[in-house]
Structures are given as C-alpha cells and as structure tokens.
C-alpha cells in the first residue's frame, strides 16, 4: 500500500565526510523530503561509476542525484571538475541507453547544507515529474 500519489524515485550518492553529514542535518532538523529518496554513501563523488547511474535508472529509479563534496572535498582539490567529467561520461552513457541525461543531477552539498539538500530533492522531483508527462 502506497502512502501517497506515486512520486519520482531518486537515488542519491552521498559522500561520507561531506554531503552525508549535510543530509543527516536535514533529518536532525526534521526537515521533510520525499521517502522516495534513497541514499547510498560513498567515500567521494569522484568515485561514482557511470555504469551505476545507468543501472539505477534501469532498475526503476527515476533519477540519480550526486551529492558531491564540492569545494570541501578532503581528498581532492579538484574534486568538482573530476566529478563533472564523470557526469559528462555518464550522460553520454545514458544517451546510448536511451535515457534522458536530465535524469542525472549533481550538486555540491556541504556538511551544513541541509536546506540546500531538501530544496534539491524537491526541485529534482518536480523536474522528473515533468519528464514523465512528456
């Protein structure tokens, strides 16, 4: 039994030391976002394999959100350009698999970016809903 109208399902790749605590903070503050948001934590957004993104969409997720470390990455000063390069690669792979590249989003979520994360989830769900209507 579903609690509400079906909502777009989002898989979030978070990062252990930066964006995951930011997402935790949203919960600690009881900020609500959709229960259709699932989170898999990783060490760093530079390590996301494009194949995981395509696999997630094929398995039924409507979108994948990479909550990157942004400029705060404790590993790589150039984490953002590296992650951006991965996004490019992933988008190419998505196109090859007839998946709209709009189903992938990336943003730096810092360890205190709780509001930011919740806003991203709400907006991404809206964008994904529009994608379904087309």
């Amino acid at each position: 039994m579903k609690s509400k109208e079906p909502q777009p399902k989002i898989l979030v790749f978070s990062t252990n030391s930066i964006s995951d605590p930011g997402i935790d903070l949203a919960g600690s503050a009881h900020m609500h976002y959709s229960t259709e948001v699932q989170i898999i934590p990783l060490p760093c957004s530079s390590g996301v394999k494009p194949s995981w993104i395509v696999h997630a969409i094929k398995q039924g997720f409507d979108g994948v959100f990479i909550a990157g470390c942004g400029g705060d990455c404790s590993f790589l000063a150039d984490c953002t350009p590296r992650t951006s390069a991965l996004i490019k690669k992933a988008q190419d792979l998505m196109k090859e698999n007839d998946i709209s590249p709009k189903r992938l989003k990336m943003s730096g979520i810092c360890s205190v970016c709780a509001d930011n994360f919740v806003a991203h989830m709400n907006n991404f769900q809206k964008d994904l809903s529009k994608l379904e209507e087309k």
């Binding site: 039994m1 579903k2 609690s3 509400k4 997402i23 935790d24 903070l25 949203a26 919960g27 600690s28 009881h30 900020m31 609500h32 976002y33 959709s34 229960t35 259709e36 948001v37 699932q38 989170i39």
Partner: peptide, 18 residues
C-alpha cells in the same frame, strides 16, 4: 534515523517502506 525516521516524521508508511 537521520536519513529516514527523522526526515519523514510526517509519513510512517512511506518511511517504513524506505
């Protein structure tokens, strides 16, 4: 807790499924 119950205090069914 932080990424499920506390973030979804308004939706027990949805939070349980998640």
């Amino acid at each position: 807790r932080e990424q499920c119950s506390w973030a979804h205090t308004n939706d027990k069914v949805g939070a349980t499924e998640k």
